[in-house]
């Protein structure tokens, strides 16, 4: 009985884990199946032969690479913009005292929970009147609406974790506030900044609604709406191609998971689930 228990526990856990991971496995398997094998009934659970033709077609015959480039520009710009503003803002919210500070913190939290559909209508009008429809800049501006409150909130939590004594010691030694920020706070905050940047990047990379409403020109279409339009416009849906696109679209995520996962988990601890 004593030796059996861990084995049963492992089997149960791993069965469940594989069940949860199955859709992802199936995505990869489908993307590697030749067209002839795809519509077999019942489906072949393990592919009889493997092909990379769908990946090749995706990169050479579809606008996938342009969508990918747009998404990179969009997500990187949003992340850089928001993390710079957020770091300065969080430093101000945590380490300075002035009137309206608490109100500002509340506003950040409120907007962090606000639904996008409430903002989408006026944003659509605003971006149209500024002449920014169908531009990546307009989309970056729209992404700020969810990315900035999010980044600020996360960075605020990280900032609160840095002992105040460190900064005070630097001030006593004659450093200015910004000098202390650069030499003391920033190095301490760096893991938090990386974590926030990763989260913001993923949020922006995955965003769909704003791209759907604000962009209808191929040249600025990001991956989310671009890949979806490949599904809708196709006469007969090419699932292998779509699964290959899905795998490619998840590449940045896979890289983050493989190398930077600890930053994701630490971000989770800070992101409002401290309980």
């Amino acid at each position: 009985m004593k030796t059996l228990r861990p084995i049963v526990l492992n089997l149960v856990t791993w069965t469940l884990v594989l069940l949860i991971a199955f859709p992802l496995l199936w995505m990869i398997i489908t993307s590697l199946k030749p067209q002839s094998e795809l519509f077999r009934i019942p489906p072949t659970w393990i592919p009889e032969s493997i092909t990379f033709e769908h990946y090749w077609r995706l990169l050479s015959e579809t606008p996938f690479l342009r969508y990918f480039r747009n998404s990179v520009v969009l997500a990187v710009s949003t992340t850089v913009f928001v993390v710079i503003l957020g770091t300065l803002g969080a430093y101000s919210l945590v380490r300075f005292t002035y009137r309206g500070r608490e109100t500002m913190a509340m506003l950040v939290l409120f907007t962090y929970l606000l639904p996008s559909v409430v903002l989408i209508i006026p944003l659509y009008l605003m971006i149209a009147s500024l002449g920014l429809s169908n531009s990546l800049f307009g989309l970056i501006l729209a992404h700020t609406t969810f990315a900035l409150p999010y980044a600020l909130w996360l960075l605020r939590s990280f900032m609160e974790g840095i002992p105040e004594d460190l900064e005070n010691a630097a001030l006593v030694d004659g450093a200015s506030r910004m000098g202390a920020f650069k030499d003391v706070i920033f190095p301490q905050l760096l893991p938090g900044i990386i974590s926030t940047a990763l989260f913001t990047f993923i949020l922006s990379w995955n965003e769909y609604l704003y791209a759907l409403v604000l962009v209808n020109s191929e040249s600025v279409t990001p991956l989310t709406t671009g890949v979806m339009s490949m599904l809708i416009s196709a006469f007969n849906i090419e699932w292998s191609l779509l699964m290959a696109a899905s795998v490619m679209m998840s590449l940045p995520l896979i890289v983050v998971f493989a190398f930077l996962q600890s930053y994701l988990t630490s971000g989770f601890g800070a992101g409002g689930v401290k309980g």
């Binding site: 884990v17 989310t224 699964m243 899905s246």
Partner: peptide
């Protein structure tokens, strides 16, 4: 990691797969 992954996946990818 395997359990965590769906949460970070793009909804577009999740929807296509499903």
């Amino acid at each position: 990691s395997l359990v965590l992954f769906p949460y970070f996946l793009s909804t577009v990818v999740a929807v296509l797969v499903w």
